[in-house]
Computed example of a mutant assay.
Amino acid sequence: MQPSFNFFAYMIYLPVVTAVTWLVAYTLFKNSKVFMLDIFHGNQELAAATNKLFETGFYLLNIGFAFWIMKIAETISNPRSMMEILSGRIGGFFIWLGIMLFLNLYLFFRGRRISKSKTKPLPIVS
Rank of each mutant, 00 (worst) to 15 (best):
F108V: 00
R80C: 02
F5L: 13
K33S: 07
L103A: 14
T75M: 05
F35P: 00
L61R: 10
Y10I: 04
L60I: 13
T50E: 09
F93N: 02
A25F: 12
F7R: 15
I99F: 14
L122V: 12
F65G: 05
F67K: 05
T18P: 01
M82W: 01
F102L: 15
T18K: 06
A47I: 11
A19Q: 02
I95K: 02
L28N: 12
F7Q: 08
K52N: 15
F58E: 02
V17E: 07
L101E: 12
I63N: 03
S77P: 01
F65A: 08
L28T: 15
K116N: 15
G57V: 01
K52S: 11
E74L: 11
L23H: 11
I69D: 02
K120D: 10
L37W: 01
E45S: 15
G92M: 00
F8H: 04
S4M: 12
M11V: 04
R112D: 08
I114W: 01
F5K: 01
Q2T: 06
T21W: 03
F7W: 04
L61G: 09
N6H: 07
N78T: 09
F67L: 15
V20K: 06
F93V: 01
S87T: 05
T21F: 07
Y59G: 09
T27F: 11
N62P: 06
L28R: 02
F109L: 04
I114V: 15
F65M: 11
Q44V: 07
S77R: 05
Y106D: 09
N43I: 02
K30I: 10
L122D: 10
L46C: 06
P121I: 11
S115D: 06
P15R: 02
M36H: 13
Q44L: 12
K116M: 13
F67P: 02
A25C: 14
W22C: 08
G98L: 13
F5R: 04
S77T: 04
T119Y: 12
I90Y: 08
F40W: 08
T50H: 05
T21L: 07
G42D: 11
M36V: 01
S77K: 07
F102H: 13
